[in-house]
């Protein structure tokens, strides 16, 4: 665990994720204003940040900071539900396909491949378009619908890993003891797939944030339901980026929030990848920090075919 935390990518990613998790939990409670109420009836242009409104106001004088804090909960909740549901689907489909093989594998792989090439966003737009914009949306339902289009990539990864594990000795011995298939899959194989499941979960949460934000930005989901995408929808319909006095405080915070949340998760993902495959680490020579490499007398530039590891460098110094 401490070895995991030593990677700067994982550390930064973890910090960002924790900050956003806190925003999701307490955001609506600490919002200074109601995101729907106009704080002034006399002003008709968005006001820049001030002491009263730290992130300024929108065209109809709503407090941007409050919208950001309230909208964070919905955005993060939807993406987490989407990630969770998609990962469950990916494990069910991927591990089953890889474990059983044969026609079950052919069928499930085909299904996954179809979902992989179908452009997800247009499909979701059609689904949400018919669900009706007027209906008051439920974050959990939105998340599950998004997950329907996001499970296939993880399923494919998991299937390949399961295939490579299917004929290992420990699986064979479990089979000989007479363990049930579902037990072998769930308790023998699945624990070995933890890194793959983790990256697949993070990947689909990123996918969930992006997709949910895109859908609410397009206005397919009720535009009075506050999320970061809805904020961008209103900023875009008021042409905030095209005004002579650039109304940056209106569209930069929600977009930055989505980007940073996604970056945090992506960094965690890269960190796990590098933990599993140390060769991917950048900086200095392979996995060794620049200073350690110099002290150990390693060449500054990594050489082909040689991937120095920290332990070797330590012994050399």
């Amino acid at each position: 665990m401490t070895r995991l935390l030593r990677s700067p990518k994982i550390l930064i990613g973890l910090c960002l994720s924790v900050v956003f998790a806190i925003v999701a939990i307490i955001g609506p409670l600490i919002a200074p204003f109601n995101p729907n109420t106009s704080v002034s009836t006399t002003l008709s242009v968005p006001q820049p940040p001030s002491a009263a409104h730290l992130l300024g106001t929108t065209q109809i004088q709503q407090d941007v900071l409050s919208q950001l804090l309230v909208g964070g909960r919905s955005t993060i909740l939807v993406s987490l539900v989407a990630g969770l549901a998609a990962t469950v689907l990916a494990v069910l489909f991927g591990v089953t396909a890889g474990y059983f093989g044969g026609w079950a594998d052919d069928l499930l792989s085909m299904l996954a491949n179809i979902f992989l090439v179908l452009p997800a966003l247009p499909l979701l737009i059609v689904i949400f378009g018919f669900l009706g914009k007027g209906a008051s949306p439920n974050d959990a339902v939105i998340g599950v619908i998004i997950a329907i289009t996001g499970w296939a990539y993880g399923a494919r990864q998991l299937r390949v890993q399961t295939l490579s594990m299917r004929n290992r000795d420990f699986v064979d011995s479990a089979r000989i003891i007479g363990e049930k298939n579902w037990r072998i899959m769930g308790f023998e194989i699945l624990p070995n797939l933890t890194p793959v499941v983790a990256t697949s979960f993070l990947f689909t949460v990123i996918y969930g944030v992006g997709t949910y934000t895109a859908l609410s930005f397009l206005g397919v989901i009720n535009t009075s339901h506050w999320s970061w995408g809805t904020m961008l929808y209103w900023a875009q319909s008021a042409q905030a980026a095209q005004q002579v006095h650039l109304e940056w405080w209106w569209f930069v915070p929600p977009g930055l929030a989505v980007g940073l949340f996604g970056t945090g998760l992506a960094l965690l993902n890269f960190g796990i990848d590098e933990f599993v495959n140390p060769r991917l680490r950048g900086g200095g020579s392979g996995g060794v920090s620049r200073r350690a490499a110099r002290r150990a007398g390693l060449p500054r530039r990594p050489q082909l075919g040689l991937t120095p590891v920290l332990r070797a460098a330590r012994r050399a110094s």
Binding site: G255, L256, V258, G259, L260, G262, T263
Partner: peptide
């Protein structure tokens, strides 16, 4: 670049 990839295209 990770940020640009994570941030929505439209942003």
């Amino acid at each position: 670049m990770t940020f640009f990839q994570a941030a929505p295209y439209f942003f």
